[in-house]
Structure formats: structure tokens, C-alpha cells
Design a protein around this nucleic acid. Structure first.
Lengths: 236, 236
DNA sequence: TAGCATGTGCAGACCACGTGAAGGCTGGGA
DNA sequence: TCCCAGCCTTCACGTGGTCTGCACATGCTA
């Protein structure tokens, strides 16, 4: 059940197989979107955040390779990509990796193996492999002990504030949209009125207020991010 | 040849196979250490840094699973681990991932596939998956941070202005038509009166006005493009 | 010169955000 | 069992920034 709240995009034109995979992944707690062709996949990828993409190669219209390349180049996303395909020739696999894929799974495959590979990629992407302390600048977040410090000073955070900080640090320096934050914090049960604002306000009071420089920045209409307070390095 | 200077630890008790793999990897530019059993592997892991570990499961003494677990827990290293083994049962694979492995390759395997999988893990570990900074001349657009600079100077852009700039830089030096821009910015909901002109005006104020040369050029009746300020290159 | 495409500038509406406080829930300790 | 302390949520208010729509200027083309 460690795929809880992981959002996955499945791109696969074979309805039957797609249905099977979706049901299996959702049982493990994942949130799965589904696209039957490359165009829909492109649209979804540009409009939503996914933690991982499962990509068939043979699709109506453009193929899976092209979708992956588009993802990497035009959209500039490093979302993990797993190719799922019946093609088992070595050259096909090499092509998949060359186009930016992270893994390549040959049909037919066992669903538990799919799950294991997805988990492996997600935990690596989230840096949850071995080290449980994440750092951004002088900010440290100890996921195991649920403690955070800045410049050595322990921060007093409520549970929710800590979870928000953890997400932001994990994604740093990427910008995280309000929707993505709400999704990960509450899943289906997003509070009516945006409590998120209050939590961010409190988080800011703890993380930024006592210090000289602010790390938590807002991009109005877009989202939030944690970044190293940078230095006015100009010239040289 | 993209494994240049990558340091790899191979743990494998079968001499012949080990030799083959080492030679192959070294040909691609990797620096390979070799251990024939779990104890030596432990020692090497604790004394040297590796970018990646190739791990046989059946070893004299403790098995590969145990080595991997030791690596993750006691040594607290998140070095990518690829299991190489003749065991092809599903449960074996699941065990490999459960113990902290990143990939699992069944013998016999093609050496180029090994190389591709190693490359995929290394580039992900180095976050070289997708480039987040796009450049045209002295103009830089950081898609992840949603920030842009020109000649090192940060540009103050509204969200919409940034989106326009991102599109133009992505397509550069191609010309983007007004219709294409509006389509990508607003989709179905294109504003009545052309707000695009105002946005381009503001974008120009930020990107070109403060600098000597203009990069954002208009082709009347056709569209807009971003190009390097060079140079009296005319002809053809 | 007429007509069109674009550049320039601005003001109002609107939205998202920061801020702060109050009420209700929960869990633990007395 | 009661009480208390956090914590989460909700609401209300003020504000700053953004987008849009418009008006007018400019310049190019036929």
C-alpha cells in the first residue's frame, strides 16, 4: 500500500489491459489518469502533475517514444517514465531508454512486478531510499523523526505544516501548485475553504519569520516553492 | 560512451561473467571495482564512493539482498543498486525491490541493456533527466523555478508574460503565429479583445527595453519570434 | 490617402494572497 | 469523567498585483 496518493498517468490504447492496470494500481492507493492516445496524453501532461507515467509504445497517432521525448524536451519534466510494451527486441528497449525512459517492462508482465518497479522509481524520485534527511540551503527536514531545523535551530511546526514543508523541500526548487499540495495533503477530502492559506501562513511564521532571508516564495496564480535564499550575485 | 568516469562496484562470484562485464563497462568509460563476495563488497562500499552497484544475489557467505540492505540501512547510502541474477521468479524480483534495489536484471542479459539501465539510473541520480533551463543568446528561462534572466539580470515577469516567453523560447528561432500563442495560452477561452498585444508589450518592456538589443521581433501578419540579437546576418 | 496591423499606455475589475482571530474537534492527563 | 491544550478549519478583511478591454498613436502597404 505504499503507492498511497501517488498520481500516475497510464497511456495505453488497449482498453482491456488498461482497465486491469488501472484497477490494480487504484487498489494499492494510487490515483490513476488514463489516456488512450498520444494527444490526450500530451494534454494531460501539460495540465496536471504526475508522479510517474506508464507509457505504451504502440499508440494511435504518435508513438510512446515521441510522447516521452516531448515530455522531456518541450515540457522539460523529469517525471519517471516506464515503457510498457509487447516489443521485446533489444533495439526496442534501447530506443526506450535513449528517448528518456527510466524502465522498460515487456508484456505480458506480472502486476506485482509493475508495482515494485513503480515503487522503486517513486521512492528514488522522492529521495526516500536511504537517507531520511532532506536539505535545502540551511534548512533540514528529518522525515523519520518528523523534525525540521533551520540554521541548526529546531522549528516548531504543526503536523500539517510539517507535511507541507516536506513536500516543498522534496520538490525543491520546483514550484508546487496549490492543487498539487491540496491533493497530496488531503486527497479526496480537500477542505471547503482554503485552509491551505492558513497553514502556509503558519509555516512561513516558523520557517522564514525568525530568519533574515525568506525561503518560501509565492508565485501568484501558480504555486509555492522552497529555494535557497540567493545571494545578489551579479557581475564578476 | 556516456558512462565516462562513472564509478561502479560489481559484486559477482562467477569469475568468467564478472570479467566480461568489467571489460564491457570499462570500454564504455566506466571505472569498475570488483568484489567476489559479500564481505569484500561491504568493505569496499564503506571505504569508497560508487555511483552505482551491480549486485549478484547468490554469493558465498551473505547474499546480495543482505548486502543491499546493509548498504541502505547501516551505511545509509542511496547509491542505485541493480540486481543481476539467474533467479527469474517473481518472488525473487519482488524481494530485490523490497530490499532497496532499483532494478533487477535476469541472466542471461544483453550487455547493451545493462548499459542502458545503468545509464538511466545514473542520469536520474544526477538529475540530468530533463534540462530545466532553456537558453537563447543571453536569455535564460528556468522552467522549474519559473524564473527568467537576461545577461544574468532577473526579469520581472507576470505569469502570463512568462508563459509567452517560455513558448517563444521553446520554439525559437521559429516564428509563432498569434493564433498559436492564443491557442496555447487560453485554449478554448481566448479573450474577446486581443489582450495578447498588451502582454507582448509588457513582455517586451521586461525582456528588451532594459537592454541594448531587441530579441523579440514581430513579423507583421505572421507572428512573433525570439532570436539572438546577432548580427547583420542577412542574405538568402 | 485609406486601411490594417501593431505599439503604447492606462484604468477598472477581479482574484489571489497575507493576516489574524475565533470556534470546534481530539487526545491526553488529572 | 472532566478539563485543558493543541490543532485544524473557517471566516472576514485589507491589499497588492494581474488581466483585460479600450483608446489612441504609429507605421506599413496598396
Amino acid at each position: 500500500m505504499s503507492l498511497n496518493n501517488i498520481s500516475i498517468l497510464l497511456v495505453e490504447d488497449h482498453r482491456q489491459l488498461a482497465q486491469t492496470i488501472v484497477e490494480f494500481l487504484e487498489e494499492t492507493g494510487a490515483l490513476v489518469d488514463y489516456a488512450g492516445d498520444g494527444n490526450l496524453a500530451r494534454t494531460l501532461l501539460s495540465e496536471h502533475h504526475y508522479d510517474l507515467v506508464l507509457l505504451d509504445i504502440m499508440l494511435p497517432g504518435e508513438d510512446g517514444y515521441a510522447v516521452c521525448e516531448h515530455l522531456r524536451q518541450e515540457l522539460a519534466l523529469d517525471t519517471p517514465v516506464v515503457f510498457l510494451t509487447a516489443r521485446d527486441q533489444l533495439d526496442d528497449k534501447l530506443e526506450g531508454f535513449a528517448r528518456g525512459g527510466d524502465d522498460y517492462l515487456t508484456k505480458p508482465f506480472a502486476l506485482p512486478e509493475l508495482k515494485a518497479r513503480v515503487e522503486a522509481l517513486v521512492r528514488r524520485d522522492r529521495r526516500e531510499v536511504a537517507e531520511h534527511v532532506m536539505r535545502v540551503g540551511d534548512l533540514e527536514v528529518d522525515v523519520a523523526r518528523l523534525r525540521a531545523t533551520r540554521a541548526g535551530e529546531p522549528l516548531k511546526l504543526s503536523p500539517t505544516a510539517f507535511r507541507i514543508l516536506r513536500i516543498l523541500v522534496r520538490e525543491s526548487p520546483r514550484v508546487v501548485s496549490r492543487e498539487q499540495l491540496e491533493q497530496e495533503l488531503w486527497g479526496e477530502l480537500v477542505p471547503d475553504s482554503d485552509a491551505l492559506r492558513s497553514h502556509l501562513y503558519n509555516l512561513r511564521k516558523a520557517v522564514d519569520k525568525p530568519f533574515a532571508s525568506a525561503m518560501l516564495t509565492t508565485l501568484p496564480g501558480v504555486g509555492f516553492s522552497i529555494q535557497e535564499p540567493e545571494v545578489a550575485t551579479q557581475s564578476e
